[in-house]
Simulated scan of single mutants.
Amino acid sequence: MDVTTLIDAVARIKSQADELTQQQIVDSLSRTLAEFTTSAENQVFAEAYSPSGNYTRLLLNDPQEPYQIVLVFWGPGRGSPIHDHDDTIGAVSALTGTAKEIKYIVTRCAGEQVKLTQGDEFTIAPGRVTPILPEDDKQLHLMVNEETRWAATVHVYLTAIHRYRQYEPAPDGLFRTAEISLWFDECGVGRRMPASTRS
Protein backbone atom coordinates (compact mmCIF):
# COMPACT_ATOMS: atom_id res chain seq x y z
CA MET A 1 0.00 0.00 0.00
CA ASP A 2 1.41 3.41 -0.97
CA VAL A 3 0.85 6.69 0.90
CA THR A 4 -1.86 7.89 -1.49
CA THR A 5 -3.84 4.70 -0.90
CA LEU A 6 -3.38 5.12 2.86
CA ILE A 7 -4.68 8.71 2.73
CA ASP A 8 -7.66 7.64 0.60
CA ALA A 9 -8.44 4.75 2.96
CA VAL A 10 -8.37 6.99 6.05
CA ALA A 11 -10.59 9.55 4.27
CA ARG A 12 -13.06 6.77 3.46
CA ILE A 13 -13.10 5.51 7.08
CA LYS A 14 -13.60 9.10 8.26
CA SER A 15 -16.59 9.54 5.91
CA GLN A 16 -18.19 6.32 7.22
CA ALA A 17 -17.39 6.89 10.91
CA ASP A 18 -20.94 7.90 11.93
CA GLU A 19 -22.22 4.51 10.76
CA LEU A 20 -19.51 2.44 12.49
CA THR A 21 -18.82 1.46 16.08
CA GLN A 22 -15.56 2.55 17.69
CA GLN A 23 -14.28 -1.00 17.42
CA GLN A 24 -15.13 -1.19 13.72
CA ILE A 25 -13.28 2.10 13.16
CA VAL A 26 -10.20 0.90 15.04
CA ASP A 27 -10.28 -2.45 13.22
CA SER A 28 -10.43 -0.70 9.83
CA LEU A 29 -7.65 1.74 10.75
CA SER A 30 -5.53 -1.11 12.12
CA ARG A 31 -5.83 -3.26 8.98
CA THR A 32 -4.99 -0.28 6.77
CA LEU A 33 -2.07 0.86 8.92
CA ALA A 34 -0.64 -2.67 9.22
CA GLU A 35 -0.64 -3.01 5.43
CA PHE A 36 1.08 0.38 5.03
CA THR A 37 3.74 -0.20 7.69
CA THR A 38 4.74 -3.64 6.41
CA SER A 39 5.40 -2.35 2.88
CA ALA A 40 9.11 -2.61 2.08
CA GLU A 41 8.87 0.43 -0.25
CA ASN A 42 7.47 2.62 2.53
CA GLN A 43 10.16 1.36 4.89
CA VAL A 44 12.86 2.23 2.33
CA PHE A 45 11.48 5.79 2.13
CA ALA A 46 11.59 6.14 5.94
CA GLU A 47 15.11 4.70 6.12
CA ALA A 48 16.32 7.15 3.45
CA TYR A 49 14.74 10.22 5.07
CA SER A 50 17.13 12.43 7.05
CA PRO A 51 15.34 13.67 10.17
CA SER A 52 16.51 16.83 11.88
CA GLY A 53 17.43 16.89 15.57
CA ASN A 54 16.34 14.00 17.76
CA TYR A 55 12.64 14.05 16.89
CA THR A 56 10.83 14.94 13.65
CA ARG A 57 7.07 15.03 13.05
CA LEU A 58 5.70 15.08 9.47
CA LEU A 59 2.05 15.41 8.45
CA LEU A 60 1.53 13.12 5.45
CA ASN A 61 -1.91 14.35 4.41
CA ASP A 62 -3.10 17.88 3.62
CA PRO A 63 -3.45 20.01 6.79
CA GLN A 64 -6.92 21.15 5.65
CA GLU A 65 -8.30 17.61 5.90
CA PRO A 66 -10.29 16.73 9.05
CA TYR A 67 -8.03 13.81 10.01
CA GLN A 68 -4.26 13.46 10.42
CA ILE A 69 -1.72 10.87 9.28
CA VAL A 70 1.57 11.64 11.01
CA LEU A 71 5.00 10.14 10.42
CA VAL A 72 7.24 10.54 13.48
CA PHE A 73 10.98 9.89 13.56
CA TRP A 74 12.49 9.06 16.95
CA GLY A 75 16.21 9.30 17.59
CA PRO A 76 17.89 6.57 19.64
CA GLY A 77 16.72 6.77 23.24
CA ARG A 78 14.20 9.53 22.48
CA GLY A 79 10.65 9.44 23.73
CA SER A 80 7.53 11.46 24.39
CA PRO A 81 6.14 12.68 27.69
CA ILE A 82 2.85 11.18 28.86
CA HIS A 83 0.14 12.79 26.75
CA ASP A 84 -3.47 12.41 25.64
CA HIS A 85 -5.02 12.67 22.16
CA ASP A 86 -7.90 15.12 22.70
CA ASP A 87 -10.38 12.20 22.74
CA THR A 88 -9.86 11.24 19.10
CA ILE A 89 -10.04 7.68 17.79
CA GLY A 90 -6.83 6.53 16.16
CA ALA A 91 -4.12 3.94 15.72
CA VAL A 92 -0.32 3.80 15.79
CA SER A 93 2.18 1.40 14.21
CA ALA A 94 5.91 1.43 13.50
CA LEU A 95 7.26 1.79 9.98
CA THR A 96 10.90 1.12 10.90
CA GLY A 97 12.41 -0.05 14.17
CA THR A 98 10.28 -0.47 17.28
CA ALA A 99 8.92 1.77 19.99
CA LYS A 100 7.75 0.92 23.49
CA GLU A 101 4.33 2.25 24.43
CA ILE A 102 3.12 2.55 28.03
CA LYS A 103 -0.54 3.38 28.61
CA TYR A 104 -1.67 5.40 31.64
CA ILE A 105 -5.00 5.83 33.42
CA VAL A 106 -6.16 8.92 35.36
CA THR A 107 -7.21 7.54 38.75
CA ARG A 108 -7.78 10.80 40.67
CA CYS A 109 -8.20 14.48 39.87
CA ALA A 110 -7.06 17.20 42.29
CA GLY A 111 -7.61 20.55 40.59
CA GLU A 112 -5.03 20.93 37.84
CA GLN A 113 -3.19 17.86 39.08
CA VAL A 114 -4.03 14.21 38.50
CA LYS A 115 -2.87 10.87 39.79
CA LEU A 116 -1.85 8.44 37.05
CA THR A 117 -1.61 4.67 37.21
CA GLN A 118 0.54 2.82 34.70
CA GLY A 119 -1.39 0.46 32.46
CA ASP A 120 -0.35 -1.92 29.70
CA GLU A 121 3.01 -1.92 27.91
CA PHE A 122 3.18 -2.75 24.21
CA THR A 123 5.98 -3.02 21.66
CA ILE A 124 4.99 -1.20 18.49
CA ALA A 125 6.60 -2.74 15.40
CA PRO A 126 5.80 -2.82 11.68
CA GLY A 127 2.38 -4.46 11.32
CA ARG A 128 1.69 -4.29 15.09
CA VAL A 129 -0.92 -1.63 15.81
CA THR A 130 -1.98 -0.05 19.09
CA PRO A 131 -5.36 1.72 19.32
CA ILE A 132 -6.19 5.19 20.56
CA LEU A 133 -9.71 5.44 21.95
CA PRO A 134 -11.55 7.97 24.13
CA GLU A 135 -11.75 5.43 26.98
CA ASP A 136 -9.71 6.21 30.11
CA ASP A 137 -7.27 3.33 29.57
CA LYS A 138 -6.72 3.91 25.82
CA GLN A 139 -6.19 7.68 25.58
CA LEU A 140 -3.00 8.47 27.55
CA HIS A 141 0.39 7.02 26.70
CA LEU A 142 4.07 7.66 26.31
CA MET A 143 6.31 6.26 23.62
CA VAL A 144 10.06 5.71 23.58
CA ASN A 145 12.60 4.38 21.09
CA GLU A 146 14.83 2.15 23.18
CA GLU A 147 16.96 1.08 20.22
CA THR A 148 20.36 2.44 19.15
CA ARG A 149 19.08 3.42 15.70
CA TRP A 150 16.30 5.70 14.48
CA ALA A 151 12.71 4.47 14.54
CA ALA A 152 9.73 5.76 12.55
CA THR A 153 6.09 5.44 13.62
CA VAL A 154 2.86 6.26 11.80
CA HIS A 155 -0.04 7.78 13.77
CA VAL A 156 -3.57 8.10 12.39
CA TYR A 157 -5.96 10.46 14.19
CA LEU A 158 -9.49 10.22 12.79
CA THR A 159 -10.26 13.70 14.12
CA ALA A 160 -7.45 16.20 13.59
CA ILE A 161 -5.71 17.17 16.83
CA HIS A 162 -4.79 20.81 17.29
CA ARG A 163 -4.27 20.88 21.05
CA TYR A 164 -3.62 18.09 23.53
CA ARG A 165 -2.47 17.71 27.14
CA GLN A 166 0.92 16.65 28.45
CA TYR A 167 1.22 15.24 31.95
CA GLU A 168 4.30 16.55 33.77
CA PRO A 169 5.42 14.93 37.04
CA ALA A 170 5.04 17.07 40.16
CA PRO A 171 7.16 16.65 43.34
CA ASP A 172 4.23 15.15 45.28
CA GLY A 173 3.89 12.17 42.91
CA LEU A 174 0.95 13.68 41.05
CA PHE A 175 1.05 15.00 37.48
CA ARG A 176 0.35 18.55 36.35
CA THR A 177 -1.46 18.95 33.02
CA ALA A 178 -0.22 21.39 30.40
CA GLU A 179 -2.08 22.15 27.19
CA ILE A 180 0.15 21.94 24.10
CA SER A 181 -0.41 22.92 20.45
CA LEU A 182 0.34 20.11 18.01
CA TRP A 183 3.04 21.14 15.54
CA PHE A 184 4.63 19.60 12.47
CA ASP A 185 8.08 20.01 10.95
CA GLU A 186 6.51 19.62 7.50
CA CYS A 187 2.93 19.29 6.20
CA GLY A 188 1.53 17.44 3.19
CA VAL A 189 4.66 15.31 2.86
CA GLY A 190 2.77 12.25 1.61
CA ARG A 191 1.64 14.05 -1.54
CA ARG A 192 5.31 14.75 -2.32
CA MET A 193 6.71 11.28 -1.63
CA PRO A 194 8.84 9.92 -4.48
CA ALA A 195 7.10 7.91 -7.19
CA SER A 196 9.20 4.88 -6.22
CA THR A 197 7.08 4.50 -3.07
CA ARG A 198 3.83 4.49 -5.03
CA SER A 199 2.34 1.49 -6.80
Rank of each mutant, 00 (worst) to 15 (best):
K103S: 12
T159R: 00
D87I: 04
S30R: 02
S28M: 00
L6S: 14
D87N: 08
G75D: 05
P169A: 05
D172A: 05
D62I: 02
K100G: 15
E35R: 13
A195W: 09
D87F: 00
T123I: 11
R57D: 15
A17G: 06
Y67Q: 04
F175A: 14
T117I: 01
V44A: 14
L59S: 05
N42V: 09
H141Y: 03
L142C: 12
I89A: 00
T148S: 11
A110E: 10
A46R: 15
I180Y: 13
D120T: 10
N54C: 11
S50C: 14
V10S: 12
T21N: 00
Q16L: 00
E135A: 10
T177H: 13
T56V: 13
I82N: 03
T96R: 10
R165W: 14
I25F: 00
N54R: 10
D8N: 05
V189F: 12
A195N: 05
T4E: 08
D137T: 02
D136H: 04
S80H: 09
D27T: 08
V10Q: 02
H162P: 12
T153P: 14
A151S: 09
G111Y: 01
Q166V: 13
E47V: 09
I13H: 05
Q139E: 12
R176V: 12
V114E: 06
A125E: 05
T107S: 03
R192Y: 14
L60A: 11
L29Q: 01
T21K: 01
T197P: 06
T56D: 07
T177W: 14
Q23P: 00
V92F: 07
I82V: 08
V189K: 08
Y67G: 05
V106S: 02
R176A: 08
S199E: 11
Y49L: 15
M143D: 03
Q24S: 00
T38M: 10
I89N: 01
T148M: 09
S181N: 11
F36V: 12
Q166M: 14
A17W: 09
Y164L: 04
G173T: 03
K103N: 10
T21S: 00
Y49A: 15
A125Y: 01
I180H: 14
G77L: 09
D136S: 11
T56G: 07
A110I: 07
M193L: 14
R198T: 09
N42R: 07
V114N: 11
R165K: 15
T148V: 12
A94F: 07
E41D: 15
T32E: 08
L20R: 06
L140Y: 04
E146R: 14
G111L: 03
G119F: 09
A40M: 13
P126F: 10
R198F: 07
A17C: 07
C109T: 09
